[in-house]
Design a binder for these strands. Structure first.
Lengths: 197, 197
DNA sequence: CGCGTACTTGACGGGTCGGTCCAGAACTCC
DNA sequence: GGAGTTCTGGACCGACCCGTCAAGTACGCG
């Protein structure tokens, strides 16, 4: 009703995400987002309320997307579950290694910058990581059923360990560790997974 | 010579470190550091040059300290090397779990916030992590010599994996993951280390 | 067509930012 | 004691910060 919005909310969220991702929350100004999108600040505040609310909306979208990505990487038949897990770990390492700008992951950056002071960010980060852990655990159970992983292992604990390795690879990448070493971490982690038999 | 400095440089670095640690680089103002230390801004700039140089000095001190801590945790006779490694991993998880403010590690926060735009931060982060990895590898080799860890394993690769797990635990902690699960990660990682025999 | 409503724009406000500068204070050395 | 040097405190600079607001615009609906 009345005058319709002239901008695409999704495009604005994408632009805002890029700014927050690259400069951090405190390092990004609403003016920068306004000029990156061509919007006036009034429109920005009218649509998103405040800098913090805009960030949370960006963060939500980002978190949902990466959790979905993991879910889609790890879904499929049981006989390929172990292969999917290995491929996912290796792809994560390769992805971090390929990020030569060291931009890293917005979930990690946002949590690092804001978790001390913003419970909403903690809540969203935690939910996302737990969803990813659950996805990993599901795949691990499938690999156990198919006889690739030791069925005696606790799938949830293994999943949390794999998640820690994944987040660790990301942290090492941001600190400038070599691509080769990141890929070694992935391979070593895979080698140490408890195989069946 | 001439008029001597009235403040203790180390105390100022500590205060600045606390500010940067808690609020991040962009979120910390030189005015805040000045008023936290009681100094005038002239003294601050006279002694440290700029915000960025002050941060780098803080960062250097912090990095050196945590690398030293790891070295001191992991030094000792070969027959206790494996025990030291396990204790260190568990202590790291316990330490993160105890940090209920989710303040995390300044190395991780600094690298996350600044590595994209500041090569000096990348350099220092990387040097620190590689020093820690070397310390871990040394301890792992000792455990191999003493017959606790499989001598066929590549100590350097294992060390990098352990480092990734340690940084991953830190990342999970900042995202609000349960203390119990963090300690599970530590235990699971230790269980999966390749034992001798 | 005209009214009401929502959106757009950019100026504006009050505050803060990093950094500079200078007048005066405190010291060493001659 | 005077000259020279360094340090101190805070006023000050221009730029930028988040958020508001009023004036104008474009639409839906009767």
């Amino acid at each position: 009703m009345a005058r319709p919005r002239e901008f695409d909310e999704g495009a604005v969220l994408d632009a805002a995400r890029d700014q927050f991702w690259s400069k951090g929350y405190a390092g990004t100004s609403m003016d920068a987002i306004a000029s990156a999108t061509g919007l006036g600040k009034g429109s920005l505040y009218g649509a998103f309320g405040s800098k913090q609310q805009l960030f949370l909306q960006v963060f939500d979208t980002y978190c949902a997307r990466i959790a979905d990505d993991v879910a889609s990487n790890l879904s499929g038949p049981d006989d390929e579950a172990f292969g999917r897990l290995c491929a996912h770990i290796r792809a994560a390492a390769a992805g971090v290694a390929a990020d030569q700008r060291h931009r890293g992951c917005l979930l990690a950056k946002g949590a690092a910058e804001l978790s001390e002071h913003d419970p909403d960010v903690v809540y969203r980060s935690r939910q996302t990581l737990e969803r990813i852990a659950a996805t990993l655990a599901e795949d691990i159970r499938a690999a156990q059923r198919h006889g690739d992983l030791d069925p005696a292992a606790d799938a949830d604990q293994l999943a949390t360990l794999v998640l820690a390795v994944l987040r660790g690879i990301e942290a090492l990448g941001k600190a400038g560790v070599d691509a080769d070493r990141l890929e070694d971490v992935a391979d070593t982690a895979i080698d140490l997974l408890p195989r069946a038999g």
